[in-house]
Each structure stands twice: as structure tokens, then as C-alpha cells.
Amino acid sequence: MNQHALSVQDLVKTFDLGFLGAVPFLGPGITRRFQLKGIAQRVEAVRGITFSVEPGEVFGFLGPNGAGKTTTIKVLMGLIHPTSGQGTLLGAPLGDAQARARLGFLPEHPYFYEYLKPLEFLDFYARLFNLTHRERKRRAEALLDRLGLTYAKDRPLRKFSKGMIQRIGVAQALINDPALVVLDEPMSGLDPMGRKDVRDLIFELKEQGKTVFFSSHILADVEALCDRVAIMARGRIRSIGGLHELLTDAQSPVEIVTRGVEGAPREALAALAAQAREASGQQTFILESDAILESFLDQLRAVEGARLISVIPRRRSLEDLFVEEAAKADAADIQAHEGAPA
């Protein structure tokens, strides 16, 4: 059986917030039973998502703010309990200690124990993995060296810059030489050099055969790094797949350039296309999707004297897809609200 590096199935997370909601055991029950508004409120952060990440993949997890990305990651990391649904990490159910021993995680905007020096800091995390003293020291020194922090090893973390904090954060995520690395917005708040460092590091991890799962807003980085991506909006997965298939799927527009198509046949073909224009004796037709490409080409072949110059699938950018999916999710949500009985 193929073992996923990470997977979730029908994952739902609803938060019970407010004064009562936060009380363990009693709060959520009281909220549900008496539907107390104001004192306690419910927020559906993740609304039934299913996806998996395969071993050795670099997987990008995208979505606008408030899409539910961080909540999903927190469920996977055992920081919050799912309302329903399941998940696996390295083939084991969520929460399995052996699987977590092979996991590395860097949260969004990390903050660390500022009174510790880098070697003490890494030693602390290494102890959580039961490593021997010698091994802890060796790994901590190697990671400081690899992330270019050796020069700052005698400084407490409170004197670290934001970029240095991010790098020491990456170091703690790699202290156990993990098989799966989960990074929540690893590039956020970094300058271009810092972003390049993180990008290089992800490439390096991929070369070592590790699985990398990361969420990001910076689409250029995602396009450069990922084998597959998932786009999440309003608590649901809107698109998932290889970057190539997502960006040139059946809905992608196609641009057709011809010569010698004039008069009535040109009008007939223009009626099929979303846009048509003519310049320098060439006709350009843009079809909304490649679904009607065959019938368009059949009609074109029937036109006497017509020459086909080119057929170019117009590749959408990841940004187009991202914006499109976010807008669709918003529209669906508004419709659901309007359709719901008052």
C-alpha cells in the first residue's frame, strides 16, 4: 500500500470561542445545547477537507488570510483537536509519538526563548528527542554552521534579528533529521536574501529525499519550488494538483492565429471565440477553453485559403488561479448565506 507522507480526510474544525467556549469539557457542550450567542460563538475554520502529500514531494499550501491553512497545520501538528475527520503523519494516526519523532515543524512568526543562546536552544529541542549529549552537540553545531549562525553562537536569542530568528527556527525544525518538514509561512517577513536562503534550503531538503509541506502567500516561491499545490479558501480546498495541470487545465484559454480567414467565415469563427481581432493580415481568436478547440479547428479547415499559424494554450499564472479560486469561494459563501433560511 502506498503510504502518504501526510494526509487528512474530511477534516472539520469548529472553534467554540467566547467566555464559555474556551472552558474545556463544559464550554463546547453548553454552547451547542443552548446556542448561546455573545457569551460563546462558533467559527467554522475548516469545513471538511481531504488531501494527501506523497513522500519526497514539495507541496505548497496556498490560500488567502483566514482560509484555514494554519488551523489545518495546527491539527496536523497536534496543537488543536479536530472536530471531526482524521489525518495521518508518516503513515501513523495524528498524535503518534514515533511519527512525531520524524517530523520537523516551524510555526508562523516564530518566537523563541529569548534568554537562551543558540547552542542551549538547540540542545533543549534535541533533548526532546532523547538524543545523547554527544549527538546533541554535534547536530546543534552542524546546523548552526549550515544556517550561517555560528558567528552568533554566544549571543542570547533576544539579540537576534528577525531573519536570524527564522533561521534558528528552521534549525530547531531540522534537529531530529526529519523525514517530513512542515513550514507555516516560512518566507513571511523575510527580506529577499532571507527568502532566497529558505528557498535554497527547501531545494536542499528535497534533494535529500525529504517531504516538505509549506504554506505561503508568496506565489513566485511556490511556483519555483512545488511539485504540487492545494489552494484553500473559506475552509475548503478549492483546487489541488500538479502546478502544470492546474495552470493548463481544460478551462484554460487557447489562442489561435490564422491567415486568410476573411468575410463571413471569419464572422462565423469569431462567434465561437471569446475574443477575435485582426492585425497585419493575421487573425487572432481566443477560445475560452480548449473544450471547443476541435470543432473550431474543423470549421477552420473547411474555410478555403485559410492557414493555421499557431495554437497556443494560454497558461494561467498561479496568481490568476489563486485570485479566481478565492473569488469563487467568496461568491459561493455569499450564495449559501443568502440561500439559507433566516
Partner: peptide, 14 residues
């Protein structure tokens, strides 16, 4: 509050 717990709970610790 300082979110340091976010890096500890995912480690093999109950």
C-alpha cells in the same frame, strides 16, 4: 501567549 508551545507539542512529548 508567546507561541513557544507551538514548537514543543509537535515533538515526541505528551
Amino acid at each position: 501567549e508567546r507561541k513557544t508551545i507551538f514548537t514543543i507539542i509537535p515533538k515526541p512529548i505528551f
